[in-house]
């Protein structure tokens, strides 16, 4: 495990270093002072407790969606429906939370966690079924489910749940709130980072254990590595494909916990915009390894927070280009490594 963290860590460090180099190149290209940018990045993101807190907040969401994508990719399926699954899980969780105002936190929070996973899994049910029974390509089906999820939750929020003149639902009962980090460490006060981060980290460990230490996880990886070989060895490939997509959906469904239970306490239309696609990027950089996902999520969160914190100095587009550049670099490097191995 330690060696694993080391090797993954080295990989992500390399990606981080390269992206920093690209960033500074861009900064110089724009005629800005790279030293100033670096200083601001350190002082506003890394050394500012608030900036660090926000980075960790963003990391949390990306761990969830990154894990969802990594699990699916590792098992040979391209789940690009994480965003829709986030909405489905988040919305179901909010609806259940609003319907159960009296429950104490010890019951309510675990229940809502389960419900959000259920919602995400439910949203992957149809693509999973179509994949297993009809061989329908999951890229198409999960993408369609994205559109449906966004439109449906938008509609439900406005038609049934919304607070007038807003685009979000009523607030959940106080018992449904996950504690903010600021409640324990004053230095993080004001920042949105919350106990969901612990849930995400525990989940990363659980996914790792599941894939590498349980017979079912082994089966799923075998299906991803070579479905024909898995079938020849008696693995029921179709039902496993179904399971993979649903499990991936459930992981993505949990991502809403960070925003809803940890931060705003309500469901807001489109709150997870782009999180699904960033999850794909995170999984790519992490080479579909759960431990790597944690570090890759941190890298992308740092980029995002730096983009915001430096927005007054350099245009946000530069950071968007940077995110793509990181993915490019990683894909190129991985292919080269793959050739050598």
């Amino acid at each position: 495990m330690r060696a694993l963290i080391k090797s993954e860590g080295r990989w992500i460090t390399a990606a981080a270093a390269l992206s920093l180099a690209v960033l500074l190149l861009g900064v110089v290209g724009l005629g800005r002072n790279p030293a100033l940018v670096l200083r601001l990045m350190v002082s506003r993101v890394l050394l500012s407790p608030y900036g660090l807190g926000q980075t960790l907040y963003k990391t949390t969401t990306l761990i969830f969606t990154g894990l969802a994508c990594a699990l699916a990719f590792r098992c040979g399926l391209f789940n690009i429906g994480a965003e829709g699954q986030v909405y489905a899980g988040g919305f179901l969780m909010t609806a259940v939370g609003l319907a159960l105002p009296g429950l104490p936190a010890v019951l309510l929070i675990p229940l809502l966690l389960v419900v959000s996973a259920l919602g995400g899994g439910l949203w992957a049910l149809l693509p999973g079924y179509l994949k297993a029974k009809r061989g329908a390509h999951e890229v198409i089906t999960t993408m369609m489910m994205n559109f449906i999820a966004l439109a449906l939750t938008n509609y439900l929020v406005m038609a049934r749940f919304h607070v007038p003149e807003t685009i979000h639902t009523q607030e959940l009962p106080a018992a449904a709130s996950l504690p903010l980090a600021g409640a324990f460490a004053r230095t993080f006060q004001g920042s949105a980072v919350n106990a969901s981060l612990l849930v995400a980290l525990a989940l990363a460990a659980a996914v790792w254990y599941f894939l590498w230490r349980t017979p079912l996880g082994f089966e799923l990886r075998a299906v991803g590595a070579n479905p024909e070989a898995a079938r020849s060895s008696g693995v029921p490939v179709e039902s496993r494909l179904f399971l993979i997509l649903v499990a991936s959906g459930a992981l993505a469904g949990l991502a809403g916990v960070n925003f809803i239970l940890g931060y705003k306490h309500y469901f807001e239309q489109g709150f997870a915009a782009e999180e699904g696609f960033l999850g794909i990027a995170v999984a790519l950089v992490a080479k579909n390894h759960p431990v790597g996902v944690v570090f890759a999520a941190l890298l992308f969160a740092l980029l995002s927070q730096a983009g915001l914190a430096l927005n007054t100095v350099i245009p946000r587009e530069l950071f968007e280009i940077l995110q793509s550049a990181v993915i490019f670099i990683v894909v190129i490097c991985q292919n080269r490594l793959g050739e050598k191995a």
Binding site: A192, F259, E274, S304, L308, R316
Partner: peptide, 11 residues
């Protein structure tokens, strides 16, 4: 500042 995601508004 142009926020990149909803959670960035307060940020």
């Amino acid at each position: 500042i142009e926020p990149a995601e909803p959670a960035d508004r307060e940020n």
